[in-house]
Nucleic acid binder design. Sequence first.
DNA 1: TGACGATTTGACGAACTCATCATATCAATA
DNA 2: TATTGATATGATGAGTTCGTCAAATCGTCA
Lengths: 129, 129
Amino acid sequence: MALAEADQPLYEIKANLFKGLAHPVRIRILELLSAAPEVSVAEMLTDMGLEASHLSQHLSVLRRHRLVTSERRGSHVYYRWVSVHGAELLAAARLLLGDLLQSSAEQLQQAATLPPMGTSDVSTVAGGR
Amino acid sequence: MALAEADQPLYEIKANLFKGLAHPVRIRILELLSAAPEVSVAEMLTDMGLEASHLSQHLSVLRRHRLVTSERRGSHVYYRWVSVHGAELLAAARLLLGDLLQSSAEQLQQAATLPPMGTSDVSTVAGGR
DNA sequence: TGACGATTTGACGAACTCATCATATCAATA
DNA sequence: TATTGATATGATGAGTTCGTCAAATCGTCA
C-alpha cells in the first residue's frame, strides 16, 4: 500500500485523495470531524440519520484513503482527521465554491436579462454540458 | 444545471467538485493552469504527451464541473481556472498530503523496526487496506 | 470550396463506485 | 457462555467513470 504509493507521481496521489472526498456522505463525515477533535460512530449515526452499515462503508473508504484514523474504546469507535490540514482543505474548497456559486448566480441573473439567443462566446458554463 | 444545483445541499456540491478533481490527468491539467494565467490545448498536449481526444475528454469534465473556462482564439483554445482559489485548493491538498506521506514514511520506518506481529491498536493505516 | 491543423464529440466495452441488505465481528455483561 | 449493543465486512445489481478509437466540428488559408 504505502510501498506501492511511493512509486506514484504526486498527481496520482492527489487525485486519489480527491477520490476519497468525492461523495456527499463522506463530506458530511469530514465536516463533523472538522468541527470536533473526534467523533464517535454513534454520534455520526445520530447526526446524519444513516443506517449503520451505510455509514461504515463510507468510513471504510476514508480509512482506506488514509484520511481518517479510528480508535476503539470499549464498544465505541472514534474517528478523527489524520491531519490538521484536513479542515483547511475543506475550507479551501468552500472558497472556490463560493466563487463558482457566485458566478453561477450572476449567470442566472444575466440569463434572466438576456434575449433568447445570446453571445457566441465559448467561455464559461455556456460551453459546458 | 445551475438551477438544479441551487437545490442541492452544500456537501453535495462539494463532493461534486471533488469528483471533478478525482483523476490524475485532470490534476496535471489544473496544475498547469495554476502556474500560468492561461494555457492552450496545444501546450497541454505537448507538456503532457497525451492524445488530443484523451485530453479533450478530460477538459470536458473540467468544463462540466465548471472548474475551468475556455476561450477560442482562431484555431487555438485557451483554458484557465474559473476562480483564483483553484490553485489554493491544490496547495491545501499538497499540505494534507505532506502530512499523510510523512506519516506513511514514518510507518514504513516503524514497520522495518518492529517484530512481525505488532500492536493490536486499530488506529491509522494499519486498519486500512 | 477543399484541405489542413486544432479541438471536440460520440460510442462502446471495461473498470470502478455506489446503494443496500445480510452477515460477521468486537466488546461488555449477566 | 449466551445475549446484546456497537460496528465492520461481504455480496450483488445498478449507476458512473475511464480509456480509446472513430468521426465531427471549427477556423484558417490557398
